[in-house]
Design a protein around this nucleic acid. Structure first.
Lengths: 331, 331
DNA sequence: GCAGACTTGGAAACCGCTTTCCCTGGAGGT
DNA sequence: ACCTCCAGGGAAAGCGGTTTCCAAGTCTGC
């Protein structure tokens, strides 16, 4: 591997000069020497050793993003938003996937801390377990104590800057919209009880129904993914409208309906949450609550990179989007 | 930031001993000292500085993956497969997205080289431009000259280990299957002419038709993504069967058909390529050529990490999967 | 023409860790 | 008892850069 010293030697200058020429410094270098160094670097095929740079500078140019599952369009959109923002800042991205294991999440924070990444983004719902959340907080605090910056997309439970989707309000609004279509008997494919995002959406939805004096919905718990929605849909009773707490679950539910010959929206209305980009190619088009996922990812990165002052929690409102998967109840 | 020296001091041992205890070494350390060091590290909240470790060891534990677009399920699946494999090896992953800009790809290789990552995975089709391919080759060669390992998923054009989907053969087989259903007038949504994957699939398809004595298909070029498929579908003439060279394009084409009231498969049959996981929730279910994407990603990582000997090129066969989006021509 | 302010180049300390090499003390062999 | 070995501990030399601190010009302005 060719080192800076090799370049300096070949160019007949000192290490310091070579460094100043090749790796952005505030100091000027004369045109003649600069050219010599650049030529030498080029001839030798020099590539700076970032590990050495990071060590010497005490700061790296990589950020870490931790998501649950990259193949889930929800996380992919969030991660993509953050990555684009990172790219414009000239930052590299390390991505970790936890596959929904909170231990993995903690381990990643520790690892990213060891890497001395500039910032860590935690994307995805928190779990309700105070013990595991506490440990994650500790690990984050340790990282921040060393000068690291962190932000999260999800709930404000970690003591870091947060982009928080308005899950309760969005779900409540959706409930009102659906009730406005004349539905009264609801089922909620509620995801896992301990997932805060899922619980909030479920609670917001149920709360709005109660406020309107409607009967409580049938609540069916299960995994937070496509197959979880598929399975939960099998257990729906006599509801005329099914709310899946996220879009991928709703997509699973639609599949279940299709297989059982239940027509959507004629026999049952279905709604989701998130407005993942793949929805536009589904039939029937899914009613949902739109979240600006890419922007949220990008915003989280901005927050993480911003000044370390007060902890910022940014609420992001969802927008109810009515599509063909729900129908107005006649009579 | 607490350093190893702090830990050593607190434990009352030398730097060397602390290093041996905390960061796996072949040398043994006495139980008493070992315990002291571990306790000190714990109390202080020590996290090794990986940049320093990388520098000292001359080898890092991160790998780089370069994909075109993470929000495309095709790349997401490939990346996920590779990332899972990496995780089992205890490796961290840096992901770069090029958004289909070959320059970006080259730049990423340079950056990952600077990071001295253990291996680089290039995922995605090559472009036919020999100049840009040459520069990418050069950059890769430089990286490998420094001891780096690389592999690619796509075409064997880079002089590195490659996992190569059998695009021509898969498309040819698909053509035969579709012809077997009685179709004779075909259109191909062919993607960009310079993308090797797209061109190969198109050529394989057309070649098989010719072999069977069928008329040449209508070839419509355009972007390699969903919207490209959507747009290209508008230009289809009197074909009874449309082959989109990848699934996301096919999905776009289905959307176009839907909007224009063209029924699939009654009015026109549609087929794609890849069998991305999201297909299972599309109506009508899309006929395609299945590629084991996750395995391919994992395999590419294995190849990259394997012994540097001979260059390995692994062909991966595709399997034609007939689903509801195609129909048999009667009469 | 000269003091003082800028520039520009280089020597060397340092970033935090690994690892070689040397040293010591105690176990094992005879 | 004596010598050999070996295990375990520490000092110190890197790893490849960055940056501080000097020194030696190079310009200014008077």
């Amino acid at each position: 591997m060719v080192t800076l010293e090799d370049v300096a030697k070949q160019a007949g200058v000192s290490l310091a000069t070579a460094s100043r020429v090749l790796n952005g410094s505030t100091r000027q270098v004369g045109a003649a020497l600069r050219a010599r160094v650049e030529r030498a670097a080029d001839e030798l095929g020099y590539r700076a050793n970032i590990a050495a740079q990071t060590l010497a500078r005490g700061a790296s140019n990589v950020i870490g993003i931790v998501v649950h599952d990259l193949t889930d369009p929800y996380f992919a959109a969030l991660a993509d938003g953050a990555m684009r923002a990172a790219a414009t800042e000239g930052l590299l991205v390390m991505v970790g996937t936890t596959h929904r294991d909170p231990e993995q999440e903690i381990a990643y924070v520790a690892t990213l801390n060891a890497q001395r990444v500039r910032a860590v983004l935690l994307v995805g719902s928190r779990v309700a377990d105070p013990v595991v959340t506490g440990r994650l907080r500790d690990e984050l605090a340790r990282y921040q104590a060393g000068g690291g910056r962190a932000a999260c997309v999800g709930q404000d439970l970690l003591g870091v800057d947060t982009v928080a989707p308005a899950n309760r309000e969005g779900a409540a609004e959706l409930a009102r919209a659906l009730a406005g279509l004349g539905h009264t008997r609801f089922a909620v494919l509620a995801g896992p009880p301990h997932l805060v995002t899922a619980a909030d959406r479920c609670a917001g939805f149920a709360g709005a129904l109660e406020e309107m004096g409607l009967p409580a919905p049938q609540v069916i718990h299960g995994p937070f993914d496509r197959d979880g929605g598929y399975a939960a849909a099998q257990q729906v009773g006599d509801a005329t409208c099914v709310f899946a707490v996220n879009d991928v679950m709703a997509v699973g539910a639609l599949a279940a309906c299709r297989e059982r010959g239940v027509r959507v929206p004629e026999d049952v209305s279905v709604a989701g949450f998130d407005d993942i980009v793949t929805l536009r190619d589904h039939v029937p088009a899914l009613t949902t609550v739109r979240l600006p996922l890419k922007d949220m990812g990008a915003r989280a990165l901005e927050l993480a990179l911003g000044e370390p002052g007060e902890i910022v929690v940014e609420q992001v409102a969802g927008e109810v989007v009515l599509r063909q998967s729900v129908r107005r109840m006649t009579a």
